[in-house]
Design a protein around this nucleic acid. Structure first.
Length: 733
DNA sequence: GACATTTCACTACC
DNA sequence: CGGTAGTGAAATGT
């Protein structure tokens, strides 16, 4: 890392040479491989391949019969219709129309007709069609799952994503495994809908104006629903944090966001279930317990053990369904397939109140699960290396309890221990985390490296080149550059106005010109996460009096991640990262040379590396959904309103890691114009930010935009076929 | 390390 | 019995 180069000569240019030092015919040696921004026409030889766009992870969710669990409606449609039938519980009654395909070999998904969840051995209970039945509100699919306890009353807001869930007082009675006719019951019982009482914060149905169309187009897209709920939570959390930071108080923005989600019923997978949760994939990462809660992975907002009452034949038992291993005790290290989990309770601050753990509630449920041999979801918590105080949670898939025992802890109390064994055949989750953490500590331990740093020192952290797929030695020749190259020198461009803040800019400071320039709020939270998408973000620059520690200087400081340019299965080269990336985190800039928009030449049509501000898909446009929920004005820009910028950047000859980012219709990255060193708003920097939390080693993709968008007068790039494999793939881009 | 806080389960009650 | 209100438990995140 060369500190000097970043200060002085910011245009660190390095010639990238795939063959390394000795390489003769570098670029010539890999003819025909377009690399990087791979397209159907160039680098993707295989059509129709279900591309592993999240490599090494399970990007394979196929909606099963539980899909209506997530059958989501635009929120508005529900509110006024109270208590109109919600819906369409298509497979409510018996046979689900879809056969669930288990993507990973034998690995049981926990839902799907006929595929009974791999609970245990037939000796414990029989696994015939009605052998295992869980009674419940969410009765769907094979696991007729309902926690007995779920029949309680719960307060509810006006909106629900989950028509499956009965948000008002449970009008249905609970008996054995009945699939409640909730919709009809509700419709019949009109009074029911108005009887509910909301909890104290009265979040009214603020969802006026634009409907909450952050929902995926298809309600059967359970992954999409989970992501939408998750992203909404994050948007709310970021906004609340931003507001709290003005007061300089910490008010638990996570809890606030969670409360709003709860009150508004914007959640996925309500109702408990044994086994996998639709739309949640192994390896998914989270930063707050509330996130687990709103997506239906783990209900208790703090408690570590989630359990429910379930039917086993004629028996009924309270079994554990999900645990969060906070990473406090255990450390049965090295082995990522086993986990020793400590029972809950007993711990108290003052030693007087400390007591032995009792075999009740969660502990009892774990004990019962040992005998029932049911699958238990495991979420592992780790210390977040980026946020010293924070934690990162990784969903690690299904486990079963192998044994349990009692143990005396250091503090002298008796504590229950449960040893869990990971079910075989599942994709890696926490194992990837462990692996990449190892690489971060010792980068040389990363195998299969073709080149340790294709930036040759231009980036602070090396960017390695790997190929675990075929024999390609590397992308075509290009020159690595970590700054965009403008047509004119910066000095000749319109300057950016600066602020007069001493030391650092503070949120809520009405005198801060930069804050005002950004619409009143500083665009980043104190941890450097982007709060909201905007047409343009103005960072502090040279004209500002504030120091380089100012929180309004984020992207100008360059990338902070260990990137890896890797060979994809079908889309040429791609980009991924060793670290987990939080939603809103800055990733990298699109560097290259700015092309004169007036001088469109034919060569450009051959250029697969041109970036243009083409209108991206809904998922990107709706990143901010959340302000509406707290009564603020929507920041949504519809595709019709979208205004492209004239800037065009080509990374064909010169560029950085972003030239390797592939397109996806279901992206995890978005671009955002940012200004800091000049004031020409038609040619801003193009910065990439994380759309959602991105687990380590997940390919980074953004939405190249709608092809042939009329908004682009001249020089629209040609249309390409898309193989992103996402459920809402537009097929072209 | 204290503190405020959340959701859910459970019980008592009407 | 059905529904409501109140309480306790758990443990997070700042």
């Amino acid at each position: 890392m060369s500190g000097s180069s970043s200060d002085g000569d910011r245009l660190a240019m390095v010639v990238f040479c795939p063959e390394g030092a000795g390489g003769g015919g570098t670029s010539g040696s890999s003819p025909g491989v377009a690399s990087g921004r791979s397209t159907a026409s160039s680098a993707a030889p295989s059509e129709g391949i279900f591309d592993v766009f999240e490599m090494n992870r399970a990007s394979h969710f196929i909606p099963g019969p539980n899909q209506e669990l997530l059958d989501a409606k635009p929120l508005r449609s529900l509110a006024p219709m109270f208590p109109a039938p919600m819906g369409v519980n298509v497979n409510q009654s018996s046979t689900p129309p879809l056969v669930c395909v288990t993507p990973v070999g034998q690995f049981p998904t926990g839902f799907g007709p006929g595929i009974l969840p791999a609970f245990g051995s037939p000796t414990t209970f029989n696994t015939t069609a009605n052998g295992v039945s869980y009674t419940g509100t969410n009765a769907n699919g094979p696991i007729d799952a309902t926690p007995i306890s779920a029949y309680k009353t719960r307060p509810s807001g006006p909106v629900s994503l989950d028509d499956d869930d009965e948000p008002y007082s449970g009008s249905q009675t609970t008996s054995s495994g009945r699939k409640s006719k909730r919709s009809s019951g509700l419709a019949a019982d009109g009074s029911n809908g108005v009887k509910f009482k909301r909890p104290k914060p009265v979040y009214k149905n603020f969802v006026a104006g634009k409907e909450l169309a952050f929902l995926p187009p298809s309600s059967s897209d359970s992954r999409g629903v989970v992501e939408a709920v998750h992203m909404t939570f994050e948007a709310l959390r970021r906004r609340h944090l931003q507001l709290d930071e003005i007061q300089e108080t910490s008010k638990r923005a996570d809890l606030k966001a969670g409360a709003i989600m709860m009150a508004s019923n914007i959640r996925a997978n309500m109702g408990k279930r044994v086994g996998a949760v639709p739309g949640v994939e192994i390896g998914d990462i989270f930063y707050f317990r509330m996130e687990l809660c709103v997506i239906g992975l783990h209900a208790p907002s703090m408690g570590g053990i989630d359990y429910m009452s379930a039917k086993f034949g004629t028996d009924e038992d309270s079994v554990a369904i999900c645990i969060v291993a906070a990473g406090g005790y255990e450390n049965e290290d090295e082995d990522t397939d086993t986990l020793v989990y400590s029972g809950s309770g007993g711990n108290s601050k003052n030693s007087e109140e400390r007591h032995d753990q009792k075999l009740e509630r969660g502990n009892l449920a774990l004990e019962r699960s040992l005998h029932r041999k049911n699958e238990i979801r495991v979420v592992r918590g780790f210390k977040d290396p980026f946020c010293l105080t924070g934690k990162i949670y990784i969903y690690d898939g299904l486990y079963k309890i192998q044994e349990s025992w009692k143990e005396r802890t250091k503090s002298g109390i008796n504590c229950f221990k449960y040893k869990l064994l990971r079910e075989p055949g599942q994709p890696d989750g926490a194992a990837i985390w462990k692996m990449t953490q190892g690489w971060l500590e010792n980068p040389t331990s990363r195998g299969r490296v073709i080149l340790p740093d294709i930036s040759s020192g231009a980036e602070i952290l090396p960017v390695c080149l790997v190929n675990e797929v075929d024999r390609e030695k590397g992308p075509e020749h290009f020159t690595y550059i970590n700054q965009v190259k403008y047509l004119k020198p910066l000095s000749s461009m319109k300057p950016l106005q600066g602020c007069g803040c001493q030391s650092v800019c503070l949120p809520g400071d009405a005198n801060c010109a930069c804050g005002q320039h950004n619409g009143g709020d500083l665009p980043y939270s104190s941890s450097g996460l982007l709060v909201c998408r905007k047409p343009i973000i103005y960072e502090c620059g040279e004209a500002c009096h504030c120091s380089s520690n100012c929180r309004n200087r984020v992207t100008q400081k360059g990338v902070r991640f260990h990137f890896e340019v890797f060979r994809t299965a079908s889309r040429g080269w791609g980009l991924r990262c060793w670290e987990p990336i939080r939603a809103g985190a800055f990733i990298c800039e699109y560097t290259g040379e700015v092309i004169d928009e007036l001088k469109v030449n034919l060569d450009d049509s051959e250029d697969d590396y041109i970036f243009q501000t083409v209108c991206p898909g809904e998922k990107t446009l709706k990143w901010n959904f959340g302000p509406e929920l707290i009564g603020e004005e929507s920041t949504y820009v519809s595709p019709d309103e979208f205004q492209p910028l004239p800037i065009k950047i080509s990374a064909k000859k010169i560029g950085n890691v972003s030239r390797f980012m592939n397109h996806s219709c279901s992206p995890n990255v978005f671009w955002q114009p940012v200004q800091y060193d000049h004031g020409d708003d038609s040619h801003p920097h193009i910065m990439f930010f994380a759309l959602k939390h991105i687990p380590p080693m997940t390919e980074l993709t953004y939405d190249y935009g709608v092809a042939g968008s009329e908004s682009h007068g001249s020089g629209s790039r040609r249309t390409k076929n898309c193989f992103c494999g996402s459920l809402n793939c537009r097929t072209v881009f």
